[in-house]
Design a protein around this nucleic acid. Structure first.
Lengths: 208, 208
DNA sequence: CACGTTCCGATGCGGTTGCATCGGATCGTA
DNA sequence: TACGATCCGATGCAACCGCATCGGAACGTG
């Protein structure tokens, strides 16, 4: 058994480079040559780590998708009403260091819109996130005057998170404004006498 | 004055082709050769209509942006509470024949995230839309039990519209679901005794 | 110490891209 | 009818792309 290479570790390095390039120049600025240069590898080394470029990009998208799954699972492990604000700001990638991740996400979303295979990867995590947010919404809205359609609210909140990500990347909103919009919606959801109004708002404000 | 050409008309034809190609294959699938073929022109004719490819794409984005401006101005001309649902579904491109337009919009949004010049074009229309929606929200929420932060609600609704567009393109929601999410939010905004609850919902439901 | 397997990275190749070039067709004008 | 401005579209060109290839270095094994 001669020279052996940790391909998993190398794929990680390569995908780091893909992230950096996709953040700066979009997905069409990701060429094998540039990836190799940024990763500090030769082109041949990059080539031997994946079957082809599509597989490399698909794996990069998998990392994005798993990032979301991790956040959802972390929130599911601690299903308090206060978690709702945190997980939504997290899914919206509104954190201080999450701008690169948001850029990469948007680049893949745009490509997924014309590449059904990629779309499925992004879609796979949605039901789990929807179920989690629905549950949290039901808790937060508990005790409100009228009945609340938790599933409809959850769908709206997840879409709102995506929209805030987009508008923040475009420079229409800054992170703080986006955060406030999110908190405002959650406060309104809990209602004027909702049980988790203050704790949810404070949790979201303190995380950024 | 020898042979003269209506360049404005030709640019229109060319941008039609850009739309078609961007819808089907994304913005990186828009090559001058394919644009010429789809437009039924020679490559030279396409080249002479724009300074370079960037100008061609910038003009295509301008058309997208002006589409939004037109919808906003149409709504501003008739500022009834019932208009709110219609203009939001319109901005979210949830209409039956608006999927191509949504695809093109998303493609440009992704590119604008790494091309500041394009981002400004998209950003320019935002204040006008925000002002319109803020006004409509104030009307709709008038007479609600608590005071309503119309500006915050408007920002949330515009972000929600973008998010619904994205999720619809990804196949996470179909048009009907997205529409219902939007209507649900508007109904909740108007409150259980809001003045425009029924009319707004019916208007939105009948438009698609 | 040879051997064979694995990895390396440079190079070549076919294809595509945006753009420049250029001879000829077109058409109003003098 | 001869001229010149304008437009046409085919072709050329340099750069870049993803991918295949290949001789040699590296290294555990018999």
């Amino acid at each position: 058994m001669p020279k052996q290479v940790d391909y998993a570790e190398r794929r990680g390095r390569v995908i780091d480079a893909v992230y950096q390039l996709a953040d700066q120049h979009g997905l069409e600025g990701v060429t094998l040559r540039d990836v190799a240069r940024v990763a500090g590898l030769s082109m041949g080394a990059v080539q031997r780590s994946f079957r082809d470029k599509d597989e490399m990009l698909a794996l990069a998208l998998t990392r994005v998708s798993e990032g979301f799954a991790d956040r959802v699972r972390a929130a599911a492990a601690e299903p308090s009403p206060a978690t709702l604000a945190r997980v939504l700001a997290d899914l919206a990638l509104l954190g201080a260091g999450q701008r690169p991740e948001a850029q990469v996400w948007l680049a893949f979303v745009a490509r997924a819109a014309v590449t059904p295979g990629l779309a499925r990867t992004l879609r796979d995590g949605y039901p789990e996130a929807l179920a989690l947010v629905t549950g949290l919404v039901a808790e937060v809205a508990d005790g409100r005057d009228g009945p609340v359609d938790a599933a409809a609210e959850a769908r709206a909140l997840l879409a709102l998170a995506d929209g805030l990500t987009v508008q923040t990347l475009l420079g229409q909103l800054d992170r703080g404004e986006a955060r406030r919009v999110l908190e405002h919606q959650l406060r309104r959801l809990a209602g004027p006498f909702g049980p988790a109004e203050r704790s949810a708002a404070e949790s979201a404000g303190g995380a950024g």
